[in-house]
């Protein structure tokens, strides 16, 4: 066990971790941030996507012990005061959700995209979420939601 200090959704948290624990495990099991899902544990499905220093990553593929001092953002940080972001609202309005199990990962990939590129093309949205599997929606409504969110955020901010 060693103690790592993570900055999760803006809050510094010190947590003891085993050498082989993934960031995903620490988020879900130690910090009870269960909004981030595990779909495969092998970096294939994207359900566990979080932002690491602003960049979307598969949290199942990252060792928690290497995260000391890093900034993590999860789905729970997207609407910290309970007020939905434009991105979340766009997911609701565009029918981009069905079972919801991929939703957190999708939102985090999309958030990462909008942070580095506030005005993405459809192809750029496609590129940004092509590592996130969804078995329900057929993706089209998700792409529409991200483009819609970009428009809203240009006008109104997050």
């Amino acid at each position: 066990m060693q103690i790592v200090t993570l900055k999760v959704n803006g809050e510094s948290i010190s947590v003891p971790v085993e050498d082989n624990w993934s960031l995903l495990r620490v988020l879900r099991e130690e910090l009870a941030l269960t909004g981030t899902k595990e779909g495969c544990g092998m970096g294939e499905c994207g359900a566990c996507t979080v932002l690491l220093d602003g960049v979307p990553i598969n949290s199942c593929l990252v060792l928690a012990r290497e995260m000391d001092g890093r900034e993590i953002r999860t789905i729970e940080g997207e609407a910290p005061q309970g007020e939905l972001s434009n991105l979340q609202q766009a997911f609701l309005d565009n029918g981009a959700i069905q079972c919801g199990f991929c939703t957190a990962g999708m939102l985090m990939s999309a958030r990462g995209l909008l942070m580095r590129n506030p005005d993405p093309t459809e192809e750029e949205v496609t590129e940004a979420i092509c590592g996130n599997l969804c078995r329900c929606t057929g993706y089209k409504p998700i792409v529409a939601a991200v483009l819609d969110a970009a428009t809203r955020e240009k006008q109104h901010g997050r």
């Binding site: 941030l33 269960t34 729970e76 609407a79 939905l84 609701l92 029918g95 959700i97 939102l107």
Partner: peptide
């Protein structure tokens, strides 16, 4: 959908 809010907020 009525379950959307729970799902977009995790």
């Amino acid at each position: 959908r009525i379950d959307g809010l729970d799902k977009v907020t995790g």
